[in-house]
Amino acid sequence: MELRAADSLDDALEVLSHRGDQCQVLAGGTDVMIQLARGEIAPAVLLHVEKLDELRGVEANGDTRLGPLVTHRDLAKGLLGERFRSIAESAATVGGLQTQVVGTVGGNICNASPAADTLPALLVHDAQVTLRSSAASRTVPLQDFVVGRRATTRGPDELLTAITLVTPGERTGDVYLKVGRRSAMEVAIVGLAMRLAFDPDGTVNDARIALASVGPCPMRSADAEAALVGGGLEPDSIDAAADAVLRDITPMDDVRGSAAYRRRVIPGLLRKAADLCSQRAGTGSPDGEG
């Protein structure tokens, strides 16, 4: 095994253009180092990108653009501000402090775990990912990039170089809720992110709902989103959204929980998430929290 520590983006892209199919990109390493130790991967080249400071920045200029080397800890501390609370909340549940200070959002995306916490939160903010190779650059919606269990459409010569989010407008609230057996150091049994925008009278005019750990990859439920738009979060519309989510998901039985349990928690999670979004948007009743 050979180690290449990229000292510039061009340098990294150069290595990928020649030997991309034999390369494992390593940023924080919190997933890759474990996969190496378990023998799950045995790349000919380990490409370290974690010293590329140009991949670490955050720009808010209309849209919000962040570099893939932004750490979970940065996000959990609220680097993106009050309008991206779901992203902060999701990052705060990725492992403990020791993994959050090292693990990166780009790594969470490219590792493409079905249970990746930040992905539902990124999805509800209409995340797009930019991939560069030495020859070209392309930007695609996150839901078209992560296509299956640990599978993305990243080409062997490509590097994830930016994540772009649509900055929410006024009267918008977002939240990430995670179901686990304990409240820390847990892989999600179900993760749910929601972002709702409201008219001044409290009618939902825009909805985004995304889930993790309910299928091969984190996903949005467009029918559930449609079920909430135009209403005021009445019990009937929450029930309709829950029915839509339950039609869209394909949960499995695993060591953490059964498929039936995963289905069982969805309606309650949607109710709780909707109330928190409403409250955070400044349109809900004050007793919504918790």
Partner: peptide
Amino acid sequence: PVDSCIYS
């Protein structure tokens, strides 16, 4: 603080 067992 990092977990040195998974730190390169």
